[in-house]
Design a protein around this nucleic acid. Sequence first.
DNA 1: CTGTTAGCGCCTTCAG
DNA 2: CTGAAGGCGCTAACAG
Lengths: 356, 356
Amino acid sequence: MLDHVVANAKRPSARVGQGSSLLAVAGEARVHPSTVSRILRDDPAVRVRPATRQRVIAAAAALGYVPNANARGLALRRTTTLGLIIPSTANIVYEQIIKGAESAARAAGYVLVLAESADVGQVDSAHRELILGGRVDGLLIASGTLRESLPRAVLNGVNNTIILNRRIRGSVPSIIEDDERGMARGVEHLVALGHTRIACLAGPEEVDTATRRLSGFKEALRAAGLPVSRGYIQRASFDEAGGYEAMLRLLQLERRPTAVAASSIVAAIGALAACHATGVSVPGELSMIAFHDATIAQYLTPSLSTIWMPLFELGEMATRQLLEVIDGRDIPSVQRLQDPEPRVIPRASTAPPPAD
Amino acid sequence: MLDHVVANAKRPSARVGQGSSLLAVAGEARVHPSTVSRILRDDPAVRVRPATRQRVIAAAAALGYVPNANARGLALRRTTTLGLIIPSTANIVYEQIIKGAESAARAAGYVLVLAESADVGQVDSAHRELILGGRVDGLLIASGTLRESLPRAVLNGVNNTIILNRRIRGSVPSIIEDDERGMARGVEHLVALGHTRIACLAGPEEVDTATRRLSGFKEALRAAGLPVSRGYIQRASFDEAGGYEAMLRLLQLERRPTAVAASSIVAAIGALAACHATGVSVPGELSMIAFHDATIAQYLTPSLSTIWMPLFELGEMATRQLLEVIDGRDIPSVQRLQDPEPRVIPRASTAPPPAD
DNA sequence: CTGTTAGCGCCTTCAG
DNA sequence: CTGAAGGCGCTAACAG
């Protein structure tokens, strides 16, 4: 059947390497190209005979017709493509954000492409390539680790861009999680278990999410009537090595904490390793809870208590907001995702403090 | 300076949402658009006065000119964009492949975009969208987990596509690691430590990489004069849960193995958890080595011995091969990456077998 | 309600 | 060596 149709084609104009054109389909179905365009796009302003419509659709299918995105993009000045820039695919935290963004994009008929950009210079050039080059209609930038000054320069005055998980002053809207609340939930969990000496593995100072988590930590301690002692706050990069080092510093303190709230699950994995390496029993001598949940948490020893955050929803919502912007509607400059609330997933790494 | 130039512009034709056009630059520099095109593309067939060239370049910079990718793609029928389809960004194994592909693409002046496609249907539609739609010049498909039959149907007769880490019969070239050798190295490591009862956490039957790793396992055992006992080969999905379950089955055997070679580091993490859960000491009672290295390996308890594979190089080489194909050159249908050899990274999870 | 026409922004023959 | 003109494949106004 398929072969038959192809054999009958008047113009064998299908090009190699790319799909067949509208023209080929039109020749095949013996109608005008614009008719094909209208039918294939379900243009409401067309009422062609069902037989003709069938013929066109069949011809398109037989030829494996896929509209050329460049031509369409050029004509429409829209590509129905969205870009998502992430610093690294390796970070487990981005998994859910990506899936959420992907899901929302697909639901709206958009294609999502990812670009990995570890440093700011790459974000800059990716941004230029993608937005200014007309490859995408809008851009999501998920880069909690960017320093404040650079993206502001990069993004100054640029439209159709949304920053995830990071507040930026200026014209680029951002959408963030309620990190303060999430961290507070974690501390409350530790307090409820009876801990009073609670430390924080905080993230790097220049990272906005780290700042928010730390302030959530401090607030929760104050709310519980507990002191915020300076030595109990250790900065660590958001990776295993950072967590490992910071945990060692914590363990060297004269008066050790009995619990640690880590502002990154990856750092917590390193911190756990530091405990094992120094023979500190978790949760016997020390409880640990980590910000963000991931599959691996329940396979660590001990299984790691975590603070689940609505990352999928963050990706979804950011995408929806971006589509609003693309459609010319205004959105708030900073939005905080409140709906699915952060919640503690208690596992084996948190327990009451030792009798001492 | 920049403001001054803009103020002097004869045609303020910069459009919002996208970059300024060639026309705007031409107006600004008072030359013909085609001259701008030639200068900006370093067309060798142009020898314009240095002053003019300077003026054009300055105007382009002042206007922040970025060529429109759609228009260029339409005219050239090439986009200088490559696509990489991965099943999930979550899998740590893809990190290095992505970085390698990204690096090789950038070196060749190409942009790499990622598309996440968990299932085959999505691979199919992504493929259509991207290649047939003219969004990319070529496509890398990294999907070791696809079943054989489906991609073959999907990809039949399609050009400019390369499969990573999976052999496909037919016209789509593929490039794979030497999984057999890698797994053999792991087994040799265990044999050298004195193990004779060695089990394999094998991957799913329908996964090509799993098959290759298993056959490397069997060959290495035979080469060492050790029997391949059936119960010692347990199938597990390539995730923590799969490794956990399979390890439990292994531990229930009457005659337990003293060592396990896992064909996936993620499954090994689950297997380690199963050992902890059942009180089996690693490496005291059981040694474990895992296929593929990752940062987390040294932060597990015990730190996990791994088999390092040249994944970055795989991504690089696949990209270079793809560019060859795009340039119309022929490449072998299946290539096996041999150069940086697989090597064992011994850590704490492997030790001599118990005296017993 | 369908065919015709004029671009979208760029590159690339052609003339000049 | 530089300006002019046509076309890449598609859509969207415009006629008929």
